[in-house]
C-alpha cells in the first residue's frame, strides 16, 4: 500500500538555471499537493507527458528525493520517519537503470540481497527461482558489461525482486527497450499484481497503461488531473479513444492555467 498525501516538491534554482528557465523565483515548484493511493493487488499507473512530475513523484516514493511538504506512507511506514525500513519493502526499477558493468549478475544480485538484509541461503534460493523464471542461468557468471540489453534488463528485474518487495515502483520501465524486452517487464508487472503486491508505474504511453492498470492518475505540470479507477476513466470518456481522451484532459488543463 502506498499513500501519497499532499505531496509538494520544490527544487532550488541557481542563477544560471533561473536565466535558462527565464524565471525570477529562487525555486521551481514541480509538484503541487499531489495525493493518490495505490492498493495491494492492483496496478496504479501515473500517466503524464514528459516533464509532468511522474519521475519526481516516484523518486520521492523510492526515497531518492525528499518532499518539500506532504507525506508518503509505504506499507504504513512514514518515509520521513523511517526511509530505510520503507526501502526494505520496496523494489525500484526504471527503463534506464544502471548496472555494475564490471560485476557478474550473480555478484550484483548477491550484493543487493545482502544490502536488503537477506541471509546467504535465502539469497541463493530466491536468485535461483528468479533465474529459472527469467532463463538467466547461462549468463549468470558473465560480466554485465558484456550482456545484451535484454539480458541486462533481466538482471535489473532480479535485482528489484530479490528481496520479494511488497511494493514495486516502476519508472517508465519500458522506455528505450525493444519489444521483447518490454514484454518481460509487462509480464513482471502482471506477476506482481497476481502475487498481491502494490504496483505503481509511470508511463507516457496510453496503450501500455490500458494494458496493465487498474487505477489511473493523470499528472500534468505537477498537478493530478485525474485520479480514479480505469473503469471510471473509460466511463467518463468524452472522446473516441483513450489516447485522445488523455490529450483532451491535458489540453483542457493548459487552457485553465
Amino acid at each position: 500500500m502506498i499513500e501519497v498525501i499532499n505531496l509538494s516538491k520544490e527544487f532550488p534554482l541557481n542563477k544560471k538555471q533561473r536565466e535558462e528557465l527565464q524565471v525570477r523565483e529562487n525555486s521551481l515548484k514541480v509538484l503541487h499537493e499531489v495525493s493518490f493511493e495505490c492498493k495491494p493487488g492492483r496496478v496504479y499507473s501515473l500517466l503524464g507527458p514528459n516533464g509532468a512530475g511522474k519521475t519526481t513523484t516516484l523518486r520521492i516514493i523510492a526515497t531518492i528525493l525528499k518532499a518539500t511538504s506532504g507525506r508518503v506512507n509505504v506499507c504504513g511506514i512514514d518515509l520521513n520517519q523511517n526511509p530505510s525500513e520503507a526501502r526494505a519493502k520496496m523494489g525500484f526499477l526504471t527503463g534506464t537503470t544502471g548496472l555494475y558493468e564490471r560485476l557478474t549478475p550473480n555478484e550484483m544480485i548477491r550484493y543487493f540481497g545482502e544490502l536488503n538484509g537477506l541471509e546467504k541461503r535465502e539469497i541463493e534460493e530466491r536468485k535461483n527461482r528468479l533465474y529459472d523464471l527469467l532463463k538467466m542461468h547461462d549468463f549468470a557468471n558473465k560480466r554485465i558489461g558484456k550482456l545484451s540489453t535484454g539480458m541486462r534488463q533481466k538482471v535489473s528485474i532480479t535485482r528489484t525482486m530479490i528481496h520479494d518487495p511488497e511494493v514495486v515502483v516502476f519508472d517508465e520501465p519500458t522506455s528505450g527497450l525493444d519489444v521483447i524486452t518490454a514484454k518481460n517487464i509487462i509480464e513482471l508487472i502482471r506477476d506482481c499484481k497476481d502475487q498481491g503486491k502494490t504496483v505503481i508505474f509511470s508511463s507516457h504511453i496510453m496503450s501500455e497503461v490500458d494494458l496493465l492498470c487498474d487505477d489511473l492518475g493523470i499528472i500534468h505540470n505537477g498537478r493530478i488531473l485525474f485520479n480514479d479507477t480505469m473503469e471510471s476513466f473509460r466511463s467518463q470518456m468524452q472522446t473516441d479513444n483513450l489516447t485522445e481522451e488523455f490529450i483532451r484532459i491535458v489540453n483542457e488543463s493548459e487552457v485553465m492555467v
Binding site: A62, T63, I64, S84, E85, R87, A88, M90, F92, T94, T96, T97, G98, L99, Y100, E101, F112, L115, N116, G117, R159
Partner: peptide, 17 residues
C-alpha cells in the same frame, strides 16, 4: 562514475543509509 552510469540511483533505493 556511479552517477554517470545511473547506478547510484539504484543504490540509494536499497535499505542502507
Amino acid at each position: 562514475g556511479e552517477k554517470e552510469r545511473r547506478t547510484l540511483e539504484t543504490l540509494l533505493t536499497a535499505p542502507v543509509s
